[in-house]
Structure formats: structure tokens, C-alpha cells
Simulated assay, not measured.
Amino acid sequence: MNIIILKESELKEGRAEVSGRRLKHLKETLKKNDGDELKAGVLGGKLGTAQVEQVGEEKAVLMFTPDNDPPAPLNVRLTIALPRPKVLRRVLYTLTCLGVKDIHIFNSWRVEKSYWSSPLLEGLEDFLIPALEQAKDTVLPHITFHRFFTPFVREILPEISKNTLRLAAHPAGAPLRSEIKEAATLVIGAEGGFIQKELDTLEEVRFSFFSVGERILNVESAVPYILGRLF
């Protein structure tokens, strides 16, 4: 935790009370006492400094002063076929740390139907706030779920990818480029890959296919590797 995230609803005239894991981090890891300062930020807002006004057994009172904007987002829209929900959470944590702000999770032929009913698809905001604290960011990604492949690709994907480079991962694609200078929309399928009909549909909406090489990567490895190569 490199900053402490405060919610706007917690602030009253610049002051916020923190407890739970944030209090534990403040006392046990940072070892802050009354009068000390630490880095903080408001969820969805500015970064700044928080002065510890009082540390107690059950809560601490912080006085927050904003001073700068959060880091710029990565210039990419990322669309991923729904992996195992536990894996999805880990991938979303990584994407939040990397600054990806527009994420679309879609269904495909090789996605297990049971994944869509998992309770792990809920409560993502609270799960991802520690990723913001790790990355010294304050803005959560916007995450949208799409239950049907064809309507998503034919109706929604062309709109969200407008005026961007359109790229989809596929083993038979061209070698992955490095360090692109323009905005991009990336499509990454299920670990079993796309079926031919799905590839044809992506091609219809003018997505180009790229390959990460001979090695077959799972989504946890593929996502940071691809983003690191491109950006």
C-alpha cells in the first residue's frame, strides 16, 4: 500500500476517519503517530497528503490536502473472454495497477457457462481499491460484462474501438508489434482460443490478428506481456 484511498463520502471538511485494514497499515506498517503525514488520495479524485490528527485503538482521524492529479491512464481498451472468476480477479487487479481504465468482459464458445453465476463477479470495487493503493492511483477501471458474443462484437465492439487500432490475439496471427503510438482496442479470447465463427466475426468488424509467439500463454501471463510489449 503506497497510498491510502479515502472515499468522498468519508470526508467532512477535509477530515476522514479510517479503520480496519487502513488503520492496521497506518499503525503497524507505516508506524504513524499523531502529527505525521502520509500519501493519500480520494477515490476518483486527487492525490495528496494526509496528516494524522489522532490515532486510536479503533480508528484514526486524517486531514487530507489534495495537491495533484492521478497518473494518466494507459491508452487502451481491453476486452477479455471471461476466464475462471478467481483468475479474472487477479487479472483485473493487475490491469488496475497498470492503469487500464476501460475493460470489457465477454462470453465466447469456450467460456464455461457456470462462470457467469459466480459471486466473485460481484464486489469488484472493494477488491480493486488495494490495487489503486499499490499503484498510487485513484481512478478505478470501468468494467462492463457482455453475456452474448455476437451482439457484443457486431454492435458494441465497433463503437468502443472507433478511431483506435483494432487488434485480437490469435496464434495464427502476425507477430506482435512493439511500442505502438496510438490508442488501441485489444481482444483476448478464452484460454482455449476462438472458434472459427468467432474469428470470422472479429474479422468482419476489421480486427487484425496478432500472435505472441510459439508459447501458449494463459490469460494471466498474456495480458501483462501484451501490454508491456505494446505500451
Rank of each mutant, 00 (worst) to 15 (best):
R77F: 03
T79H: 08
I80V: 13
I80M: 11
L82T: 01
P83Q: 02
P83V: 01
R84T: 06
P85S: 04
P85G: 05
P85V: 05
P85M: 02
K86W: 03
V87L: 06
L88H: 00
R89M: 00
R90Y: 00
V91T: 00
T94R: 12
L95G: 01
C97S: 08
G99F: 06
V100C: 07
I103L: 11
I105V: 15
I105R: 04
F106L: 10
N107E: 12
N107P: 00
N107V: 00
N107K: 09
S108W: 05
W109S: 14
R110M: 01
R110T: 04
E112D: 14
E112T: 08
E112K: 12
E112Q: 12
K113D: 11
K113H: 07
W116V: 01
S117R: 14
P119E: 10
L120H: 01
L120S: 01
L121E: 02
L121Q: 03
G123H: 08
E125P: 02
D126W: 07
F127D: 15
F127K: 13
I129L: 07
I129E: 05
A131Y: 05
Q134A: 12
Q134C: 11
A135G: 03
A135W: 03
D137N: 14
V139D: 12
T144F: 08
T144Y: 08
F145P: 13
H146V: 06
R147N: 12
F148D: 14
F149E: 05
F149A: 06
P151H: 07
F152L: 03
V153H: 07
V153Y: 08
L157E: 06
P158E: 11
P158D: 12
E159Y: 00
I160P: 00
S161N: 05
K162A: 15
K162N: 14
N163R: 11
T164F: 02
T164K: 07
T164N: 04
R166A: 09
L167W: 14
L167D: 12
A169C: 12
H170A: 04
P171Y: 08
A172N: 15
A172F: 13
A174M: 14
P175Y: 11
L176M: 15
L176F: 12
S178C: 08
S178N: 11
E179S: 15
E179N: 15
I180F: 10
E182Y: 10
A183G: 14
A183Y: 08
A184D: 05
A184C: 13
T185F: 07
V187D: 01
V187Y: 03
V187Q: 02
I188T: 06
I188P: 01
G189C: 07
G189V: 07
E191C: 03
E191S: 05
E191I: 01
E191Q: 06
G192L: 12
G192S: 13
G193Y: 09
G193M: 08
F194S: 05
I195A: 13
Q196E: 14
K197L: 03
E198C: 06
L199M: 15
